[in-house]
């Protein structure tokens, strides 16, 4: 049984076991991650009537997603895991979207995109899924202006395209359960920011006298 968190768009928390979502709570507002994350976790545990000790791990979406919100979910997952003494299972948030697509009967090449703000989209491409319905990512995740997608992914016209508003924590949890039960690899420890911090190196102090 996993507590799953994804904050790559809004804030989502879910409790999953095997192929079942036991509880799921979400707040769509993309500016209130830090405010709502704690209550969503207690509410999910209460909804499902599950004690922290009964969990086998914490699943978390590592993005891609806008920095500030994405970090809230990852920080919460890491700390929750320390408190509960359970492992963190990290997944690429786009993979959860692709998993949802294939698990509900989709097939073939898939392009997933989510909002990266500043008129750009995060994207990932999948060639299909394997025998366990686990998505096979063929390119990405990347960040691009929608008009330039064709350069990044020349064959993108042949992909079924999903422009998602939202990554469900339930899907993150279900994917993590499936990856764990088949002994697959999880995502790395680094958040998928895909953008460098906004900083400009100044050329030195400006003159104050003319």
């Amino acid at each position: 049984m996993l507590l799953a968190i994804d904050t790559s768009a809004g804030t989502g928390v879910a409790l999953v076991e095997g192929d079942t979502i036991l509880a799921q709570r979400a707040v769509e507002d993309t500016r209130r991650h830090a405010e709502v994350i704690g209550s969503l976790m207690t509410e999910c545990l209460a909804d499902a009537g599950v004690a922290v000790a009964a969990l086998s791990g914490i699943a978390v979406g590592m993005g891609p997603g806008p920095f500030t919100g994405l970090r809230v979910g990852i920080a919460a997952a890491n700390a929750f895991a320390l408190g509960a003494q359970k492992p963190v299972l990290r997944v690429v948030s786009h993979d959860a979207l692709a998993f949802g697509h294939y698990a509900s009967g989709g097939s073939g090449a898939l392009l997933v995109t989510t909002d990266a703000r500043r008129r750009e989209r995060y994207w990932s491409a999948y060639s299909g899924c394997d025998g366990h319905v686990l998505p096979v990512r063929s390119a990405g995740p990347g960040i691009v202006h929608p008009d330039a997608l064709e350069c990044e992914l020349p064959e993108y016209g042949s992909h079924f395209r999903v422009d998602a508003e939202w990554v469900s924590a339930g899907a993150v949890g279900l994917l993590a359960e499936r990856l764990a039960s088949h002994g697959r690899e999880f995502a790395g420890r680094s958040p998928l920011y895909l953008r460098s911090p906004d900083v400009t190196l100044s050329a030195g102090p400006k003159r104050v006298t003319s």
Partner: peptide, 11 residues
Amino acid sequence: IAAAKALAVSL
């Protein structure tokens, strides 16, 4: 804040 809340809930 996120870390503190998660610790508070898990503990």
